[in-house]
Design a protein around this nucleic acid. Sequence first.
DNA 1: GCTACTCGGGG
DNA 2: GTGTACGAGTAGC
Length: 883
Amino acid sequence: MLFQVLDVDYTIVNELPVIRIFGKSDRGKPVCGFFEGNSERYLPYFYVDSEMDINKVLEGETNVHKTERVKRFLPIGYHKEKKDVWKIFLKNPAKTPELRDRLKAKGFDVYEADIPFKYRFMTDFGIRGMDWIEVENEVPVNTNTVNVESKIVIKKIKTTERELSDLKYLAFDIECVPLKPGSVPDEKYDPVIMISLVFSEPYKGKKSMVISTRPGKGVTSFETEKEMLEGFVKIMMEYDPDILTGFNVKNFDIPYILERMRQNEIVPMFGRCKKQVTANKVMSRYRVNLTGRIIADSFEIVKRDFSMKRYDLNTVSENLLNENKEDVKHSEIDKLWKGSQDGYEKLVTYCLKDSKLAMSLLLKLNLLDKYFALAKTSGTLMQDILDSGETMRIENVLLNEFNKNGFILPCRPEGSDVAKREKQRIIELKGGFVIEPKKGLHSSVIVLDFKSMYPSLIRTFNICPTTLIIDEDMENSIMSPAGAKFVPESVRKGIIPSILEGLMKERGDVKKRLKVEKDPQKKKGLDAKQWALKILSNAFYGHFGYPRAKIYKLEIANSITSFGRETIARTKEFIEKKYGYEVVYGDTDSVMVKIDKEDLEEIKKIGDSISRDVTKNLKGVMELEFEKVFKRFLPLTKKRYAAWCFELTQDGWKDKIETKGIETVRRDWCDLVSETTKRVLEIILKENDIKSAVKFFNGIVKEVTERKVSIQKLVITKTLTKRADGYAGVQPHAELAKKMKKRSPADAPGVGDRIGYVIIKGLDLVSKRTEDPMYVIERGLEIDSKYYIENQLLPPVERIFSALDVSKTELLGKGKQISLCGALNNFSGKPKKIEKVSLDEVNGLICVKCSKCYDMPPLTGLCECGGELMFSSVKGIARSVTV
DNA sequence: GCTACTCGGGG
DNA sequence: GTGTACGAGTAGC
């Protein structure tokens, strides 16, 4: 039998563990393989480095099975010889931490005592997540501990290479109604009213289903919530998906449904073993345990893989699928649920659409390809790849490779060590070298990059914890500019350099295959593979400087960056001295070289020849590459620039505007800002015309002042995350929500709603001058053009222009901006005092003593000169204002 | 400029 | 489950 590994866990049989491998056979059948061990039971173990007789220490430890004296290399520092260490075998994996902590408390050096049993097994038997396993002469097992038909004993394990099997997907979405309208549903009290399910393979001839406690067209209805939830479990078990998906199901739908099952006294059992499904809250996030299936939450993956302003299902589907959610507001769900049959059916469609979209995201965009590749290359189980970050992947690779070569790994640090490391890291870890940018707008700049710089440095200089020379003196050692010393490859090749060599060579092979591959499906798979190899290679460097890492070594991290800084500095010098070109900028692994040619092909030729020349003079596997051309390059500061970029692709040269560190989209900016910033950059970079860009901006300022800009472009949007009166400070959108509630409680925005607002003219704090755009249009209110110019448009644009020495006054169109107060003073000479004016005549504040004008009252309530402030209007100064 | 805190998605 | 885990963006100093 042949099957692909989806999940691994263990169960206790006769007080000893038995490994279970959950997978999908080549014939599309779910399988569970049981592995007990061959002649001997396979048991958990860890290591202790001690000269003492450990058996004396372990007397009375009931969980210890046996001990062995074995030879291993210690992981940190170069050691000529393996050392005698104790290998302690245990009975119950779950009780390992207890013993580990007792030994640690007694001062013993403990190794590999924090490896989950399933990973201990996988490492020892060379099994990686999503691997194919070949089993011969399978023997069926008689057990009722798993909900899988094919249950077999595994005696011998052999892995093979094969394409991904066809997996079965289920997308679902729940709807629930809060008992208290307008609040967020509470899983303790508020029932689930409806669940939609979408199947990747038909289930009883259906592509989708909606189950609910109210009958309707196309709805499978149940009498009670309890029956519906039982129905949900039944469908899940019968359909038996490998992958469970939905939008934010991991942090909402699943925990919610589990609590509803508890309230209804249903045992939550819908995985592939007879263990209850649990969702544990860890630091405000849930971790769901669903044995044998993989939860792949579309929301989480999209958030990781795509950069967007917002990540709600509608925005995400619009951007990635060109589809939209059904148009139902949260506050409407209650009405539709309780209202007419037509309205109810709208709710059904809405619920179904959400599941469909979640499924489409996963399948149409092949979102999982990259993660399947990461699971295989790092050896991590698919669920862990989706749930956890880089650390776990790296440490899995490390465990595999260290063990294979006779090394053992340290344990993860304890809380107090992490805190110490965090402090030390800030002080001692030095990053890459950023070349001071040459001011101005440059033309024809070549971008040259070091190919995989940090991994290449690690390989070139044999940087590894296993080659680090600790307090020994040795000839021929390699010394980094940071001072650490490593043994050369001839003495011992480091494990990490070897890992990286393997990963990088494999990536080269995959890329070669990718070039000739024609089949689009296979191409996607190969592309995911090369991406995973790159991501993994690049993550090693960071690991040495990560305070929670098993191998945290600042000497190593600093050695890598110091070699990097040296390389970049030398490269800059080399290019400037030998070629006479100017290096206008560079960051960590790149140099931007300004040359005097126009033609792209010609420029590339020069770039290639410089790269070759530099590479020739570099050590080891270091390589400088031509990357792209900046036809125009505008550096603002270190780490911030805009460029008109040309890249050579398979279909010739492709151009785009590239920005780094310049915010073009920000949540709290209105559309006008991003549009204007974008256009300004375009004029500067593409037309090479600063004056024209200034003129364009002057025009926008004028349009705003003259109120010619569509109000839609001035709308700023924020989400009301809690009740409007629950905010501590003054929040613009919360203030508006309060106002709207006063006007019409029924239509007021509720918690979770997005609120769009504009800033209108007035005397209050800006945050209190927020208004509903519709209300502004209806009432013909005046927007605060000064706010939009000074606080929205100017900040980003000013940063760009200051790199070109264009001043703020030029941007505002000098002469035209006489402040209203100035005009007022000029008209009236000395301000006259008027007792009362109405609010719409007020246009600012004025000091009675020195006549200085203010749009907003200073915090002190008084003028800088100490004078009293009065309202000013076209008519003069008012003591009070009628509203 | 840096550090501390908040909030996202879901209904 | 031999594991205790974000991260971008904004407010505040």
